[in-house]
Design a protein around this nucleic acid. Structure first.
Lengths: 353, 353
DNA sequence: GCTTTCATAGAAATCGTTAACTATGACGCC
DNA sequence: GGCGTCATAGTTAACGATTTCTATGAAAGC
C-alpha cells in the first residue's frame, strides 16, 4: 500500500506519472480525456490519482493551456438586496458555464473600482462584470473606456450591468434594465390615481446613472400628462433607510401639499414609511408611497409596497451569458431588460380635499 | 512614440524588458522592489510598464513565487441576508489582508459543497470558508474531515463558519456564534414576560446544526424554569417566509393556546406575522413574536421585531483573520462569538385570560 | 597596487501543465 | 510483401513569472 512518493507535499502530474509508470503527458491526457489512451493505462492512472489524492493545479493549467475559467464581479456592496440578486445571477450563470466567480466590493468608490478592474486584468478573468449604477464623470468614463480596451486586448470582456454604455468605441457588453420606463410607468400610475403633486426622493448625486434614469422617467411622465413638476420636491438621499427617513422629515417640515412620494428605491421607501408613520400620516389613505426594485422587503412592509419590479437575477445571468458567448450574441452586446409596476397596497387615490 | 513590440497581445515581462533594454529579471525586481536597482534603470522600466500598459500575470506569479493570494467562501445562497453579511465580512477582511475572494454557492447541497471544496483545492485558495450550518450526517462529516486534511497538506485551511467543529483530529479553524445562548436568553425573556406556552417554529431538519442549537437553547430555558415543553409545538419550516406562513396557519388551525411564537429566523418570523395578521391576531397584544438573526428586515416589520442579534460580519472577518494568521492565533482556532437579545416591539406580556 | 566587498545586472533553472512534434508497433491495402 | 494509417505513448518546448547562482565594475581597505 505505497502512498505519496514525496512525503507531505502536494502531488503533481509527475508523481502520478511515476506512480503509474507512464509519462506526465499521458496523465494529462487521461485527465483531459481529449486523446486516445488504452483502457488499461487509463485505469492505472486513475488508480494513482485516487491513491495520491491528486488534484490539478489550476494556476499551472491556466498558464499552459486554456485560460483561467474565471468571471469577476464587482459590486458596491454585498449586502444590498439588489446587488445580492445580481450576484446570485452572475454566480449561477458562471457555474452553469463551468466558471468560477471572483467577487470584489468597491463601496461605490470609482477609484477603487478601477483598481479592482486592474486586479482582474492581472487575474486574467474571462469577464469582468461591473454591477450597479456608476458615475457619468468624464475622466471616470475615459479611464473605464481604457480599461475596457485593455481587457479586450487580453481576450477578456468588460460588462456593464445596470448602467448605460460608455460610448461606441469602448469594447464592452452592456446589460441594462429600463430605469426610465419603470419610473415612467409608475409615475403614470400615480397620476392615473389622481395624484398631481408627487415628491421624488432620490435626486441626490447628479450624474449617477440609476437615479438619473428613474428621475427622467418621473419627469417624462409629468410632461406627457402636461403636469408641472416642482423641482424642489426632489430631495437628496443616499439610498439607505436612514436617508429616506431624514429626507421625509425635512419634506414634511417644509411642505405638506404632496399627496404621494416616489422613493428612488424600496430601501429608501422603508425609511420614508417610518417617518410618515411618526408624523401620524396613514399610507395610503393620507399619502401614497411607492418604491423601486421590488426586493423581498417590499412585501414585508405594512402596507405592502407598490413598486417597480426588476429581474436582477436575470440581469446577472444575461451579463455573464453575453460576455462569455459573444460570438453567438454578437448583435446583442447591448441589452435592455424590461421593468414593470407591481401594484400592492401602499398607493391609492389622494385624499379628497 | 513606439508602442507594443508585438501587436495585439498582452505584454509580458519580456516585452517590458526588451522595451527598456534590461533583462526580465531586472523588470521583476523593479516591480517587486525587493532588490537594489539603480534609480535610472527603475525609471526606464517603469516608463516601459506604463507605455505598454503592462500588468503582471497572477497565474504565472502564483506558479513561480508565492501562492495565489486567494480566499474562497462557500455559502448556501448569496441572497440570504445572513449569508450576505458573512460574505461582506469575509470580503472585507480578505481585502484588508491583500487577498482576493472566490465565491461559490452550494444551495445547501452537501455533495455540491464537497465538490466545491475540491475545486478550491485545485485553485490553491489559501483558506476555504464554509459558511452556514451544515449537516451532522456521519459520512458527510468524514468526507469533510478528509477534505480538511487534504487542504492542510497543500498549506491551505478549512474554516467552519457558523457551524460546530468536525472533531479534534480535523485540521480546521472554527468560528461559531452562540446559537444556543441566544435562544436561551430569548426564551428566558419570553418566560419572564409571563409566557408559559411558547411555540417554536423551525425544528425542521434534525441534524442541522444551526436550528439544533437554537432549539437546544429553547429547551434548556424551559428546563431551567421548570416549565414543561410540549414538543408538538415545534413545527417544521425551511427557513423561508412562505414556510413560516404555512406553519403558522397549521399551528392556528390545530391549537390556539400558545401566547408566543419563537421563529427560528427573522425571515420565518416575517411569514408568521402575515399569517397572524390574516387570522386577526394582534402582535404583541394577542400573540408575542420573536425572531433570530437581527437582519435589517427586523426593523422594517410592523411591529419592529424583537430578535437575537448576531454579528455576522464579524463572524466572516474573524474566520478569515484566524485562517490566514494561524501562527498568531494558534490558540484560538475555535472561537465563539456572542449573541444577545434585541428588545423591540413584537413581544410583550401575554394577554390576561 | 592588489584583493575584498558591494551594488547592480544577467543567465539559467524552476514552478506544474499543456501542446506540438516524434516514435513505434499493428493493421489493412494494393 | 512493402507502405501508408492508426492507435498509443513519450520527448521537448512553451506559458510567464521568480529565484538561485554568476558576473562585472567600482569603491574600499591594507
Amino acid at each position: 500500500m505505497a502512498r505519496q512518493p514525496t512525503s507531505g507535499e502536494r502531488p503533481t502530474v509527475k508523481d502520478v506519472a511515476a506512480s503509474s509508470g507512464v509519462s506526465a503527458t499521458t496523465v494529462s491526457r487521461v485527465l483531459a480525456g481529449n486523446y486516445p489512451v488504452s483502457a488499461e493505462t487509463r485505469a492505472r492512472v486513475m488508480k494513482a490519482v485516487r491513491e495520491l489524492d491528486y488534484v490539478i493545479n489550476a494556476q499551472a493549467r491556466a498558464l499552459g493551456g486554456g485560460g483561467t475559467k474565471t468571471v469577476a464581479f464587482i459590486v458596491h456592496d454585498l449586502v444590498g438586496p439588489a446587488f445580492a440578486y445580481v450576484g446570485q445571477g452572475v454566480e449561477q450563470q458562471a457555474t452553469a458555464e463551468g466558471r468560477l466567480c471572483l467577487v470584489c466590493t468597491s463601496h461605490g468608490d470609482p477609484d477603487r473600482e478601477l483598481e479592482i478592474v486592474e486586479l482582474m486584468r492581472e487575474q486574467q478573468a474571462e469577464a469582468v462584470v461591473l454591477v450597479g449604477g456608476g458615475s457619468g464623470n468624464r475622466s471616470y468614463v475615459d479611464r473605464l473606456t481604457q480599461a475596457a480596451r485593455a481587457l479586450d486586448k487580453s481576450g477578456s470582456r468588460l460588462v456593464l450591468c445596470g448602467r448605460p454604455p460608455l460610448g461606441t468605441d469602448a469594447p464592452a457588453t452592456v446589460v441594462e434594465y429600463d430605469n426610465e420606463g419603470g419610473a415612467y410607468a409608475m409615475t403614470s400610475y400615480l397620476i392615473s390615481l389622481g395624484h398631481r403633486d408627487i415628491a421624488f426622493l432620490g435626486a441626490g448625486e447628479a450624474g449617477h446613472s440609476t437615479v438619473d434614469g428613474r428621475l427622467r422617467g418621473f419627469e417624462r411622465a409629468h410632461e406627457a400628462h402636461h403636469l408641472p413638476m416642482t423641482s424642489h420636491r426632489t430631495s437628496a438621499v443616499t439610498f439607505d433607510r436612514e436617508s429616506g427617513y431624514q429626507a421625509t422629515r425635512e419634506l414634511l417640515a417644509r411642505d405638506r401639499k404632496f399627496t404621494a412620494i416616489f422613493a428612488a428605491t424600496d430601501v429608501v421607501a422603508s425609511g420614508v414609511l417610518v417617518a410618515l408613520r411618526e408624523a401620524g400620516l396613514r399610507v395610503p389613505e393620507d399619502v401614497s408611497l411607492v418604491g423601486y426594485d421590488d426586493i423581498p422587503l417590499a412585501r414585508d412592509l405594512t402596507p405592502e409596497l407598490t413598486t417597480v419590479h426588476v429581474d436582477y437575477e436575470e440581469l446577472g445571468r444575461t451579463a455573464v451569458r453575453h460576455a462569455l458567448n459573444r460570438e453567438r450574441h454578437a448583435l446583442s452586446q447591448h441589452t435592455m431588460i424590461g421593468t414593470h409596476v407591481i401594484i400592492r397596497d401602499s398607493a391609492g387615490p389622494p385624499p379628497s380635499p
